[in-house]
Amino acid sequence: MNTTAFTGIRAWLVQRVSAVAILAFLVFALASFWLRAPAGYAEWRSRFENPALQVATLAFSAALLAHVWVGLRDVLLDYARPAALRRFLLGALAAVLVGLAVWTLAIVLPLAA
């Protein structure tokens, strides 16, 4: 993954749009927990068998990972020296985030089957 992905004005926009998406999902998730906490495994699992929640979960994780990328990239650019270490850490971060995206798919997609 190119470590200059989502930079400049695009990073700014990605950060804002993803922030709103994340917040919307969190408000929805907290509200649904508040209204009715899942009593057990069966109920918890049946919730996630709803395609709408699967799509929402995938969208949430995409927004979250993009948000994490922009945020942690800013942090690494500020503190990680020298440049070689910074490049390594940015590459490692990108690899972890791609791995997390694949993991999320591996969690959600079997539920849809």
């Binding site: 057990g40 495994y41 069966a42 918890w44 699992r45 996630f48 979250l64 990972l65 994490v68 972890v96 997390l100 993991w103 999320t104 591996a106 969690i107 539920l111």
Partner: peptide, 16 residues
């Protein structure tokens, strides 16, 4: 906390 959260979600949906 994202990776632990993903792990918890994975585990909680796997089986009782």
């Amino acid at each position: 906390s994202v990776p632990p959260a993903a792990w918890l979600l994975d585990l909680s949906l796997r089986d009782p």
